[in-house]
Amino acid sequence: MKNTTGLFALPARVLHWLMAAMILAMLFIGVGMVASVSERHAWLLRIHKPLGIAILVLAVVRLAVRLRYPPPPLPADLPMLQKLAAHASHWLLYALMIAMPLVGWAMLSAGGYPVMLSDSLRLPAIFPAGPIAFAVLRHLHSWLAMLLFLTFLAHMAAALYHGLIRRDGVLASMIARRRE
């Protein structure tokens, strides 16, 4: 099925902005909680785990939406290198929004912690407990988060570039505001 509207499908747009807010919030919550010894540490961690799992669920839905409704093509005159960068960064973002929660879940499992999403809701372990796996996964969680943040910054700069400099409808295709 080809996209002829020049827009992302409505579910894709809704998921995009909802998850953008959630993921950006998660990045700030994550670095904020591990750099705090105050009550902030406790309540941020209480938000972090269920919100992260919600992102995992939504990411799977989003991937399905992405495969079901192809996005509008990039402008034909976009230089090859920029097209390549756009596609690579989009797939990297999809990969990271799935990998981050899985690594978070796996690292708590490897650390022997009960994976509690609330006072009483516990997810099963998805990785055998062990100190080596824990340490590797815990560091991976940090490094992938940094990669996600940098990819997000580049993604946001590129969107602004399309919207403000090129004015080529790429930003509009996600905002659903067609330019006359």
């Binding site: 591990v34 010894v37 902030r40 540490h41 406790a42 961690l45 100190p131 080596i132 340490a135 815990r138």
Partner: peptide
């Protein structure tokens, strides 16, 4: 919360050492 945060940091240091990272 301070204990939780500090114990996690200590735990990551010692498990990283066990893992020879």
């Amino acid at each position: 919360p301070a204990r939780s945060a500090a114990y996690a940091d200590s735990y990551l240091r010692r498990t990283s050492e066990e893992a020879h990272l």
